[in-house]
Design a protein around this nucleic acid. Structure first.
Lengths: 354, 354
DNA sequence: GCCTACCATTGGATCGTTCAAGTACGACGC
DNA sequence: GCGTCGTACTTGAACGATCCAATGGTAGGC
């Protein structure tokens, strides 16, 4: 249909199309939703009229009747401190693309930062969305608990970390559909790569102990060192996720001249290490090896290019949408949790060059 | 209402509330939409029941009747090459917050990258959204032209650049509601700042001539130099928006030893300049001054901190929502276009330090 | 030629809300 | 006492789709 047509008059409805095609409303509806029920020639004719009039079903009416909006809610938080905002951007875009293919759209909403539950309830009660995607499962999961309680469909990006307070028994109760990236494996990849480059004493620069994600990644670093027969003791340090704090921590670690490389829990941290190197006249790649995490924009635009663990966000989004489809069609979900493997983007901060 | 209540039974409707409160549906509807029509004591009673039952109007039904979804469509493009993705992230978040306050939500959709119009038409015809926000007006505005043609409400982030081919006469026809940031003024700010720091021959590193935004920013640089009595001839260079291309271009410019500073059209470009400086052993801030544009994450995490022009995205979002409200309420829009002023985030790449 | 089965197609009811028109009732003016 | 007005609320219809039960038509079996 040419865009011009829309100017001609008011929007066509099912009845309009039915009248034009000489059939009933239901037949037109079937032509759209159950085409196999129509005789081929009828289908052809109805489709021609639909096309000619530029008819598109009214979402509100369909939603009212079927009780399904084909919208997926995502609470879009203010970008976290650090470099993770670009991560969110990449993820959201992948999610939009993946859900578009199944005829769903993403509805963004916000809420009181102090109340992690704010916004969910209202969208549910007004039947505005069919399901939710939850992204920040690191700090406990009140949203997931709430949605499970009220029986709303959702999938999380991030596994449900068991609460150590409750022990393993309670942990087994925490089950819902999730997709996550194996951060432990990512840190192991990065560390192994540094060892391959000839480094021996590879330091860890991580977040505070309270971060589950941080502890998981740290375990990967430790494992790589142990596999290589390097004693990790004295090589781990921790601080807050912030360039300047990381810079200071790196200076401290570098007082030990045997340390020649860093595996960092995030790109922000790694950038702090690079700052410290610049201040000490050390050239990354040549004098020292550094790796980050998340492959943010900063990682590939910073000098001399930061090696970083990249999360397969496009794949994460596709898996999430796939699971959502299963949940929404009330099919039992094949696998409750899906763990995806990250890859290492090698740049010059970790590889001998010149 | 406690979240528990929802488990009790099916969702309450207007009739449910009406019955409970001993009034008619319409009265309940009025309690929500035209409370002044009710007697205070009735209003009180109805509200109590609404609260007790945890009633929230069904969006689909309301949307069907009023023909307004309270959704605003935003085509979420794949992040552009360069650092602008973080910009988009900040903007989208601001938009979500601003529109939340007026009871609107943001609906993200995607479309065939080859067809800038893809997706708009379908959402319109299915009455899924009330209006659109368009963000990429730099490369012509087929979306805006299309939406104007079909009479759909929209606001653009980015002014309508007149097509130089058509001349000023046609330019006056191009009018719609827009909000933009004065890039020319931003570049002027940055350049003036570098001049203040004692630099004289401040080079420009910009995009290809075809970019309107690029030409506009360049004009700001030129103006600042002319005000200071510096001849801009031979100081401008151009390349594609990419760190490595910028690095090479910077090396070329730096062959002229009288050049001691760069105003760059983007952070990506500025980072390229920083790379070149690192390779030449020049310390940004001390030996050379560099400024970028957009204040991306990379600008404040890179070493030694990149001075950059910051767009007031939060304010842009608020203005856009404000204009949308006027458009949607069919009020005439006060000002068709609103130009906002950027600010300069000064960091160590442009200021003498140590 | 009649019955059954099956298929495409039909009309009416329904989802939950708002709009437009209508009722009931008390206050006011002449 | 009657008509007029205004307030407070009620009733029936409509928005545009889908679901459901019922219809008419055709083919096959005996």
């Amino acid at each position: 249909m040419s865009p011009m047509r829309r100017l001609a008059g008011s929007k066509p409805t099912l009845s309009t199309v039915a009248e034009q095609a000489g059939v009933s409303r239901q037949t037109v509806s079937n032509a759209l939703n159950n085409p196999h029920l129509l005789r081929p020639d009828t289908l052809e004719r109805v489709r021609a009229v639909i096309d000619e009039l530029g008819y598109t079903p009214n979402r509100a009416a369909r939603q009212l009747r079927t009780r399904s909006s084909h919208l997926i809610g995502l609470r879009f938080e203010p970008a976290q401190e650090g470099t993770s905002e670009a991560l969110m951007d990449r993820f959201v875009h992948s999610l939009v693309e993946a859900s578009d293919e199944t005829g769903h759209h993403i509805l963004l909403f916000s809420g009181d930062p102090a109340d992690p539950l704010d916004g969910y309830d209202e969208l549910l009660r007004s039947t505005a969305v069919d399901a939710f995607v939850i992204t920040d499962t690191y700090a406990g999961t009140p949203q997931a608990d709430f949605l499970k309680l009220v029986g709303a469909p959702f999938v999380t990006f991030g596994r449900p970390w068991e609460d150590p307070e409750l022990g393993a028994a309670a942990g087994s109760e925490v089950d819902w559909a999730w997709v996550d990236v194996d951060g432990r494996h990512g840190a192991e990849l990065a560390t192994a790569h540094l060892l391959e480059q000839g480094h021996e004493r590879v330091a860890w620069l991580g977040w505070e102990k309270t971060s589950r994600i941080g502890q998981d990644r740290r375990a990967g670093w430790r494992q790589a060192l142990e596999k290589a027969g390097v004693d990790p003791r004295g090589l781990g340090s921790r601080t807050t996720d912030n360039v300047d704090a990381a810079r200071l921590a790196a200076h401290e670690v570098l007082e030990d001249p045997t340390v020649t490389a860093f595996t960092c829990v995030s790109d922000t941290m790694a950038l702090g290490v690079l700052h410290a190197c610049a201040e000490r006249g050390l050239t990354p790649g040549r004098d020292i090896g550094v790796t980050g995490f998340d492959d943010s924009v900063a990682a590939h635009v910073t000098w001399p290019g930061l090696t970083s663990v990249r999360q397969p966000l496009e794949q994460v989004a596709r898996e999430i949408v796939d699971i959502l489809q299963q949940v929404l069609s009330l099919r039992p979900v094949e696998e409750k949790g899906r763990m995806l493997q990250p890859t290492l983007e090698v740049r010059r901060s970790s590889r001998r060059w010149e």
